[in-house]
Design a protein around this nucleic acid. Structure first.
Lengths: 212, 212
DNA sequence: GTCTATACTCTGATAGAC
DNA sequence: GTCTATCAGAGTATAGAC
């Protein structure tokens, strides 16, 4: 139940409440399994009122996905700008991503399933996702080039990192919270990639010195 | 497109074809987003004919999930019986699991989403899943106890392993195949857990000596 | 086991009053 | 911006002939 902090949603606009409740229903019942009536019942309005805020059900999913990807790309750029080398950048991005997955009140579990990701209307989101993937792969490639990381297929590595982020989204709801999960996950992945695993402590110190 | 080998499905029974096509449609459109008409159209029968083979749409999902979990538990038991210690057992299980995810003609991407996993009728499957999780956690706990593995939360580690398996299911369809993915994934995870990462080569040799 | 026909519910979306 | 009323289509499942 960690992360999805119900309550204290008093000042949210109706539009934001629709996004919030839709994200939770999509996560548990699927996109097509969630009716606009379900969403509106959770928000406390009648079904046709939804169309004062969104043009269609798809556009709700689109906004949820765009919001998530935009924040991830901003975090990647921020971490890269701060420098510190591939290991520190990877560690810092992962710690940010897992923290965000756990603490965000929106339930993002459904957004990266084919059912939503492959909606015909979501072309621009698929572009954002590609940008995101390319930036992660660039950090990995750089780490391999400098000799910091072991030499494995960067696409394989990036997908493994994606998998761990998505697992954090799944685990943040209805599962026992893991103590210090962001640091655990960032440490495990970065250590797994380091050629010299003993460097992990120095990398963590350096990353923490540069802030969250 | 790797794994889902279309064609040469000539001798399948109608019942098996329903399971096959349902798994593919559930994966791309979600469970509730897939109608019984969709499944039957893919198989080449009329919608009411489905009810000669299954009592309900849920029972199709149940059979797909039970089949998957039963095979995983059998693999875990086989690997544990063969021995070799925690690192070898973990490596061999992971290599089996990823190989199976990639080569199985059924598309299992949707089975571990909340939409299917939390169907009220699937209690027995949730029990199988718990058995599976407990067995993986036992191997991890043993490896920590012997000092082979670094000392991290076993639930966190098991969920990370789950995530990598699920990613292999996702990647086996519609994404570029990764060369030697089962060995890559098993090596990366096992090395990440080994206290002495230099032992990974010996573990792999030992695992390969004990067969697939 | 497969078919046609059908019951009855739920779906996303629009029209128009307030 | 929210409401009631409504539409046309798609949803699961059953009955009964062959």
């Amino acid at each position: 139940m960690a992360g999805i902090s119900r309550g204290s949603e008093g000042t949210w606009s109706t539009r934001d409440l629709i996004l919030l409740e839709a994200s939770r229903l999509f996560a548990t019942r699927g996109f097509r399994g969630t009716s606009t009536r379900d969403i509106c019942a959770a928000v406390g309005i009648r079904q046709p009122s939804l169309y004062s805020h969104f043009a269609s059900k798809q556009s709700i999913a689109e906004e949820l996905l765009r919001r998530d990807l935009t924040l991830a790309i901003e975090a990647l750029e921020r971490v890269h700008r701060d420098g510190g080398g591939p290991a520190v950048e990877l560690y810092r991005y992962l710690r940010w991503e897992i923290t965000y997955d756990i603490e965000d009140p929106f339930d993002k579990r459904a957004l990266y399933n084919a059912e939503i990701l492959e909606l015909p209307e979501l072309d621009s989101c698929r572009n954002l996702l590609e940008t995101c993937s390319a930036q992660i792969e660039a950090v990995l490639r750089q780490g391999i080039a400098t000799g910091d990381f072991i030499d494995l297929d960067v696409v394989f590595l990036r997908r493994t990192i994606d998998a761990i982020s998505i697992e954090a989204m799944r685990g943040s709801v209805d599962q026992t919270p893991i103590v210090d999960q962001p640091d655990l996950a960032a440490t495990l992945v970065t250590r797994a990639l380091l050629r010299d695993t003993a460097r992990i402590d120095a990398v963590r110190r350096e990353a923490h010195a540069r802030g969250l």
